[in-house]
Write a protein that binds this DNA or RNA. Structure first.
Lengths: 201, 201
DNA sequence: CTTGTTCTGGAGAGATCACTACAGAAGAGG
DNA sequence: CCTCTTCTGTAGTGATCTCTCCAGAACAAG
């Protein structure tokens, strides 16, 4: 059957994944070594490789778990009725997640492989695609809003999308650099207020 | 006196610096190896070390040259009369420099050491300070504008500064991800238009 | 020419990289 | 008990990292 036999694992796999997430989130894929991981997880090399395959597979699993636990706000934004609502949900929640008190500041999807070795290009491409999908989501909503006369047609949908994405990704960088949650939320509030006054004028 | 004696250098130091800039600008400090540099520069290890000292010193020289050649717009923005003028100069010129046709897209100051080894912390700190000085410059201008009644006091100066910095650094990331110059300028125009309508309302 | 100085490539040091071979340990099933 | 399976640490693989040693080459000065 699917009954588990053999010597049981000597460590908590979920906890290990969580600690690996801390490292990758705080530093990035290529500058975290397997030795850093084994030291933080408290296991030997072979245990780590037996449990996760290799460094790239471990990172992929970390990204999946990260998206599940901290990336829900993107889906929430995707369900919003307008581009403006989506942007507000996206940016406010991102500001929260990028400044969690017991987690590295910043965003794993934005800065997990900003500087990568040529050999790690597939990982960087995967993260870039995830970022691009956020931009595309906002752009699609802006297109629909303009078609439905729910938003002024002064700027192209892509400008709206890139503006939102720039704030999203820029805030991630600022969080890494030490900006507080209040700092980021202040910048987001300012952006949303200006969005409103532009639409009302 | 300071007459140059000994065997002359067999390569153009300025050209070598330029090629090193390409590598560091496109990838980042820690993921560019000395072997990458010697291959791109067409010199051997000892020649590179004799000419530049070591990898960190070469990077520092690259950053200096980069700032001199591509970072002039920051000083230009610092000379602007208001925060709004400064932001417009900063963001529009940044969009240009981050999408030069014969250079890597993005910004060396923003993403030169986003993912760094613990041993490279001094380099990351230096770049962060350069970014912070941009934020501080905008914040100081916003403070002065509000005091002079040249800008509404609805948002704190720091919110204005972080908003501008988020757009600046976010655009750098988007440029790295393949956004075109028109894309970035569209996002900047939108931001500046909204700034105007917020101030006029 | 000789002497002094600097640059050159080759060869390699010492450390670290991701990863694995192996033998024994620790459980389940019989 | 014994067998089967899986996990464990140790030890080490070849590759790559930054950086250096060294002997010779290429110039200027005398």
């Amino acid at each position: 059957m699917a009954q588990r036999t053999g010597r049981p694992r000597g460590f908590d796999r979920g906890l290990a994944l969580d600690r690996a997430m801390d490292l990758f989130w705080g530093r990035g894929y290529d500058v975290v070594g397997v030795k850093d991981l084994t030291a933080a997880l408290g296991v030997s090399d072979s245990s780590l490789y037996a449990a996760f395959g290799n460094k790239a597979a471990l990172f992929a699993e970390v990204v999946d778990e990260y998206s599940r636990r901290y990336g829900g706000y993107v889906d929430e934004a995707a369900s919003a009725p307008t581009a403006r609502h989506a942007a507000a949900i996206l940016l406010r929640n991102a500001a929260q997640q990028q400044t969690l008190p017991d987690r590295p500041h910043g965003c794993l999807i934005v800065n997990g492989a900003t500087n990568h070795l040529p050999a790690s290009a597939p990982i960087a491409v995967d993260l870039r695609r995830r970022r691009d999908s956020v931009t595309a989501m906002i752009e699609a909503k802006a297109t629909a809003d303009i078609a439905a006369r729910a938003m002024s047609e002064g700027s192209p949908p892509r400008a709206h999308a890139l503006h939102v994405s720039a704030l999203w990704e820029g805030n991630a960088q600022l969080a890494r650099d030490g900006a507080s949650r209040a700092d980021l939320l202040g910048a987001v509030d300012l952006a949303m207020q200006r969005w409103d006054s532009a639409e009302l004028s």
